[in-house]
Amino acid sequence: MLAKRIIPCLDVKNGRTVKGINFLGLKDVGDPVELGAAYAAQGADELVYLDISATVEGRGTFVSLVEKIASRVNIPFTVGGGISSLDDAARLLDSGADKISVNSAAVRNPDLIDRIAGRYGSQFIVLAIDARNQGNQWIITTHGGSRMTDRELFSWAREGQERGAGEILLTSMDHDGTRSGYPCDLFAQLSEQLSVPLIASGGAGSAQDIARVLTEGKADAALAASIFHYGQMTVGELKEALAASGVCVRM
């Protein structure tokens, strides 16, 4: 049976993991390779590394970091953050990333999805979407939720799938960081309209929230950051709680 995936997300700035984590017993929690390997050992199904470096030097560091992650970590990992061209994507995939995620750049230039999927295949590209509720519609935002666009969520997700995205990663910017749970109706509606997997992100405050989005919300995977980073629970503890709620997870 296909398991629901649990995906820790690590923010990386200038080659170092941002956000403190001290419950893993690691010597260096700022080392993205060590931290990723520790999450893998705890039972993470995949990892996402987001490069939040703002400088050219920082971005260069990220590429060599991807090589180190690839040689050490034995589960799939996605990298994202600031990918705006086929060349950016190629550098990261050729360095050993299993998938790349695109967000703002794809909204600006949707053809980027076709070009990456055309060269590497759909399975290598994740379309990340940040949406906000506006009246009776969900509207796409860019630049970390700070800029509204004129695109509507459902049509953009379907367009992304048609252009070749192999997965959709949806964050509700209204729930992100609130730890108040996911908008499960929204995820369920979108999941039913997509033939590719849907990853839920943003808003998890507890194992029950994640269980709900994977069942009622019909999401295929859940991405989480704070719940792990602040030591609330380990990946293993989360999976045990999910299994106890009847969610199929890889133990």
Partner: peptide
């Protein structure tokens, strides 16, 4: 083949038994 009613997605992606 995907099957929305049964929750079957394609590509088949992830950890399976």
């Amino acid at each position: 083949h995907p099957d929305a009613a049964a929750g079957v997605k394609v590509p088949h992606m992830g950890w399976n038994t």
